[in-house]
């Protein structure tokens, strides 16, 4: 298991990185934390001709709270987000999701942007980003564009990003006062990719009526799946068993998971329903305080 040959560049600035990407075209590949890319290179499932290492771009590593928007530079290590008190205070869902990615040692190196661009269907960060209605900032030589998470994921391991572009920043609008969240997953072992993951973010008024809710699932489709029906079913209501059942039914309708060794399609669908109820319940309880 040794990687194939490639050329290696380590740009000192974003501009330089973008120039290199432009030059390399389809042959170029960014390496960030390498926690997904290097294993598949070692297995020779990927053989990029030209690796552009963005680990020198310190300016892409930051966590900021600006105008009630959480901004995280793409190169920020997952463990930096995990250890950030600010993130824990203002964005509990993200903080909870992060701890479930792999292991301490992979989080020490793996980056926020890398996970989102890698776009594994059961990965935690893409799911968290979608649930939190976040977006990504994408930079190329010609432009800087912002793409909402809802539009970013296209299919299995594929996103809206072009080979000449760099994901530079992740932005997440922050929670309102009376809001609650939950992130839960079922995995075979601690630290494994989820069989199914579910995340929910919800706001509730003083009477306990739900004013807004976003529910999304990982592992049930080629991309993280936003359950739009949840909003329709739950808005203006207090959470109840019958409503939970209704949402679970929508989830069943909308998911079409694959079968593999570790979980059949039916089991994944079932887990999606179970987790839906669990995250909605927990988020509701947290929102009510």
């Amino acid at each position: 298991m040794k990687p194939p040959k490639f050329e290696y560049y380590k740009p000192a600035t974003l501009e330089e990185a973008l120039n290199l990407l432009e030059e390399a075209g389809d042959d170029g590949k960014i390496i960030a934390g390498g926690q997904s890319l290097v294993p598949i290179m070692n297995m020779r499932l990927a053989s990029p001709k030209c690796l552009i290492d963005i680990n020198g771009l310190e300016e892409l590593s930051y966590i900021k709270n600006e105008d009630n928007t959480l901004k995280i530079g793409t190169l920020t290590r997952q463990s930096d987000v995990e250890q950030s008190e600010m993130v824990a205070n203002v964005c509990g869902l993200l903080a909870e999701a992060i701890t479930q990615i792999g292991h301490v040692q992979t989080r020490n190196r793996g980056t926020i942007g890398g996970s989102i661009v890698h776009a594994d269907p059961s990965a935690e960060l893409p799911l968290a980003l979608l649930t939190l209605n976040g977006s990504v900032q994408i930079t190329s030589k010609d432009e800087v564009r912002t793409v909402a998470a809802e539009d970013f994921f296209i299919t299995y391991l594929t996103t809206d990003i072009m080979p000449t572009e760099v994901l530079t920043e992740v932005t997440i609008p922050l929670m309102e006062e009376k809001s609650g969240y939950s992130f839960q997953e079922i995995a075979r072992r601690h630290g494994d990719f989820a069989l199914v993951a579910a995340a929910c973010h919800m706001t509730v008024d003083d009477e306990g009526l739900i004013t807004a809710v976003r529910l999304a699932l990982g592992g049930v489709e080629a991309i993280p799946l936003l359950i739009g029906d949840a909003e329709d079913i739950l808005t203006g209501e207090q959470l109840s068993d019958s409503l939970l059942a209704q949402v679970a039914e929508s989830v069943e309708m909308e998911s079409d998971p694959e079968s593999d060794l570790h979980a059949s399609s039916e089991y994944r669908t079932h887990l999606a329903k179970v987790l839906t109820k669990r995250v909605l319940t927990q988020a509701y309880e947290r929102a009510r305080g």
Binding site: R188, R189, H190, F193, L261, H262
Partner: peptide, 25 residues
């Protein structure tokens, strides 16, 4: 489990698929 599909293809060729218990298990 060293798993094979019904066509004899091998399914557990990495430590992501062949699951060894770790400390939390």
């Amino acid at each position: 489990e060293l798993a094979y599909d019904k066509n004899g293809q091998f399914l557990t060729g990495s430590f992501m698929d062949y699951l060894c218990p770790t400390a939390p298990e």
